[in-house]
Nucleic acid binder design. Structure first.
Length: 819
DNA sequence: ACCTCCCGCCATAGG
DNA sequence: CCTATGGCGGGAGGT
């Protein structure tokens, strides 16, 4: 292991030579410029500390002295290094003196751990590059230089760069060389991540996890629901999400398929973007990221490692000012968590190519699209080689063409460059959607334990209340006004997304196409795409899941896709040729599966619908093709079915909810599945389904496009809920004595409703309805701190978000500082 | 005593 | 084989 720490003598210097040299060698000058902290000072300390076991730091010294560590060794070490070191260092010929000098003189100089934190390092790194670099210039980053200048080991730089890369703030050019993009792509990236996060039902996963925890706390007894219940997680194995323009540059040298840190980073960000109170606890994040259907025995070590990584990532994200640390209080005590303080992301702005010409440069676009697709298809695992599947390409093309047609229309999205967005959050909180999702989530629960029910119901109620009719659209953002984005057209119809079965992917609204990727472990992959619908067939036994999305417009494609799928079910990857006939087979097969599948069982007992769902769709991953075809998707999207499904709001994001919402049992079993059986290829949501879930409908309606205020009042919701029998009349108000009326379950998730309000951008305030007022702090508008979280020690609260309302009751979240 | 998370060993990918 | 990357987890600083 590392003997270095304990044994300064022998090994150490070996080690020392290694790193120290690199670091020491670095030029201080640059450093000083960048960081005022202590350029020169810094260096020396480093040297000191370099000696592994025996730091020259005051404390270390003390220890050393006490322990009577051999000084000669240290000196030796220093000698070795110093020669290489900076000139100033050389000056001090007497190493011993020097060492003393530093240790004594600059107490502060000693790089306390904090000073060496990745966050700080990242900050230094960021200082070197502008947020919005002139694209004309070449903003290359040489890792060597950076590490030297920042005086850190390379390894650390990789950590930073990897995260930045995950946000597409940099992209790799070649070995040792990266290009700095700054925040030009940030919004677009975040949008994409959000979308993907939604598609992955991260929100639901989070809730699932929380619920589980909760359950565990209370009763261990309830493991009942069948084994199925618990652990299956939706978790999917995502691969690195790329942006449309970025892949090119990076592509050439794309190394490791793996990119775990990158992927983790993206997932982590997704969690924020998807969760309603944009607060994510490390614990939850780790679980989700670990993702597998681990059977509750979270590998301790694995978990710990994940946490470590998350801290690393969090530090970088913090430096980017995208998140900040907070603590969420729970029964157990506080838990470390992070809150998103970055820009709000719109659901889906049509990603118009930021590239110079708007014109559909066919060739270019297509190419990019393809590229993208293929890239996305690569599972991180790498084993399955899916690489450019012909069908995919085809699909892409088709989509493209469709899109073109559609886009040509006047309504086509204006080119709003997402790139610029960074500074101001143009986004709108799509509260409605989220609320709806939450409500639904909550609703499904009821059948379960009473306890939970209670809690949940309470929450639900609250949430419902909270749900403001706000129409996200209010947003002043020019772009929005101009271009409603794809969704808009669709948005015309009242939304029914609720009706969508869980199987359906949320993304429909987004109008994004996807490639479906099954986790290798699950079985085979398949690919399909369709903005519209996704059908998932799963054999529970195998846990094999398939998602198929159907696109009315691109049937042909679908068929092809299906064809492949047909085999995939049984089989393995293969590049099957396509037969249209196969699709049918597939269908049948899927039907058969369904019949046997647990779903049926679930019908009987309404419990755990969610679980069932989860089970059904273990780990399927959809890769959005949207980027590829920036515009295209919409076209597809517009089929009637979609329209029906999608929420109407143009700018709004409401529709996104749909996917997120867990469907109630009855709904799923009764309505959705049947539908699937019938026509996989052309699935349409039966209108009736809507009726089935009144609550959901209510929610969705709220989202109605133009009128924020229209949404049903909370009372209405409650009413509805009550009628449904999901909640008892009294439930709505505080279930939780401690928290008070609004009180929510301590867990973060519960908090969410509130925070939502807080999160709302000012612009939208007008939209905010009375419900919000409810939450408002008596004091009046103030900074918005999420309920759950208290602001940083600095007390700085979100400036960035600028929410005006403070939640009345706070969940107890304390700032880290406090704690 | 737990929370953070730095450090750097060492396996891999890439060349 | 050598270098660039980066997974990983020990264990130490912080609170």
């Amino acid at each position: 292991l590392n003997n270095q720490s304990e044994n300064p003598s022998s090994e150490p210097h070996k080690l020392m030579l290694k790193t120290p040299l690199k670091q020491a060698a670095t030029s201080n000058s640059v450093l000083s410029e960048i960081q005022n902290q202590a350029g020169s000072l810094l260096t020396p300390p480093k040297l000191n500390e370099t000696s592994p076991g025996d730091p020259w730091t005051p404390t270390a010294n003390l220890k050393i002295l006490i322990s009577a560590a051999s000084p000669e060794i240290r000196n030796r070490e220093q000698k070795k290094r110093w020669p290489d070191g900076p000139s100033e260092v050389l000056e001090a010929k007497n190493y011993l003196h020097v060492s003393f000098y530093f240790s004594l003189t600059n107490c502060k100089s000693q790089p306390s751990r904090k000073e060496k934190s990745l966050g700080l390092l990242c900050h230094k790194f960021l200082v070197r590059y502008p947020n919005f670099p002139n694209t004309a210039e070449n903003n290359e980053i040489c890792l060597d230089e950076v590490s030297e200048e920042l005086n850190v080991e390379r390894r650390r730089i990789y950590d930073i760069v990897n995260v930045l890369e995950s946000l597409h703030m940099v992209s790799r050019l070649a070995k040792n060389r990266y290009v700095w993009h700054g925040r030009h792509n940030l919004n677009k990236t975040l949008q994409t991540l959000k979308k993907v996060g939604e598609e992955n039902k991260y929100k639901q996963q989070i809730q699932l996890i929380k619920r589980r925890e909760y359950e565990q706390e209370f009763e261990l007894e309830d493991e009942k629901t069948g084994m199925v219940t618990t652990h299956t997680s939706l978790n999917t194995d995502l691969c690195f999400v790329e942006l449309p323009g970025m892949e090119f540059r990076a592509a050439s040298v794309n190394s490791r398929k793996d990119k775990s840190l990158r992927v983790m980073s993206q997932k982590f960000v997704m969690l924020f973007l998807v969760s309603t109170p944009q607060i994510v606890s490390l614990e939850v994040a780790a679980k989700i990221l670990i993702g597998e259907d681990h059977v509750e025995d979270l590998d301790k070590s694995k978990f710990k490692t994940k946490i470590r990584r998350l801290y690393d990532i969090a530090n970088v994200l913090s430096s980017l000012e995208l998140i900040k640390k907070v603590h969420v209080k729970e029964e157990r005590g506080r838990k470390p968590a992070f809150k998103w303080i970055g820009p709000h992301i719109l659901p889906y702005t049509n990603p118009v190519p930021t590239t110079t010409t708007i014109v559909p440069s066919h060739s270019v676009e297509c190419k990019s699209a393809k590229e993208q697709c293929s890239k996305n298809l690569f599972p991180s695992r790498g084993k399955q080689s899916f690489t450019r599947h012909p069908s995919l390409m085809k699909l892409v093309k088709t989509i493209e063409s469709d899109r073109r047609k559609i886009h040509s229309a006047p309504s086509s999205p204006t080119k709003k460059s997402t790139t610029d967005s960074d500074p101001n959050p143009s986004s709108f909180p799509s509260k409605m959607a989220q609320l709806a999702a939450i409500c639904k989530e909550q609703l499904e629960e009821p059948s379960r334990q009473l306890k939970k029910m209670k809690m949940k119901l309470t929450q639900t109620t609250m949430q419902c209340k909270l749900a403001s009719p706000v129409k996200s659209q209010a947003e002043p953002v020019p772009s929005s006004s101009q271009t409603p984005s794809l969704v808009e057209p669709l948005g015309v119809l009242p939304v029914i997304h609720n009706s969508m079965s869980p199987a359906m992917l949320p993304h429909a609204y987004s109008g994004v196409s996807y490639a479906v990727y099954l986790h290798p472990s699950q079985g085979q992959t398949m690919t399909t795409y369709s903005p519209t619908f996704t059908l998932q067939c799963v054999s529970c036994a195998n846990m094999t899941g398939i998602k198929t999305s159907l696109d009315a417009n691109s049937k042909a494609l679908l068929n092809d896709a299906v064809t492949e799928d047909g085999n995939f079910l049984i089989a393995k990857e293969k590049e099957v040729t396509k037969n249209d006939n196969i699709s049918e087979k597939c269908l049948k097969r899927s039907q058969a599966l369904l019949e046997n599948s647990p779903i049926k069982k679930y019908k009987g007992n309404e419990k755990n619908l969610e679980d069932a769902l989860v089970t059904l769709f273990p780990s399927v991953y959809l890769i959005p093709l949207a980027h590829c075809t920036q515009l295209g998707n919409e076209a597809v999207f517009y089929s009637k079915e979609k329209a029906a499904m999608c929420s109407s709001e143009p700018g709004t994001y409401s529709s996104s909810i749909a996917g997120l919402l867990p469907v109630t049992t009855s709904e799923v079993t009764a309505v959705n599945f049947p539908a699937f059986h019938i026509t996989p290829l052309k699935l349409m949501v039966p209108p009736s389904s809507v009726a089935t879930v009144p609550v959901a409908n209510g929610v969705s309606f709220n989202s109605s496009p133009d009128n924020p205020s229209q949404s049903p009042s909370s009372s209405l919701r409650n009413f509805t809920l009550q009628h449904l029998g999901l909640i008892s009349p009294g439930m709505q108000v505080s279930a939780n004595p401690i928290l008070g009326p609004a009180s929510v379950h301590p867990e973060t998730e519960h908090v969410s409703p509130i925070s939502e309000n807080s999160t709302v951008p000012e612009t939208s305030e007008m939209c905010q309805t009375t419900t919000e007022n409810f939450f408002r702090t008596p004091g009046g508008p103030t900074k918005n701190s999420s309920l759950a979280v208290s602001s940083d020690s600095k007390g700085v609260d979100e400036i960035s978000q600028g929410t005006k309302f403070v939640p009345q009751r706070k969940l107890e979240v304390s700032t880290e500082a406090k704690l």
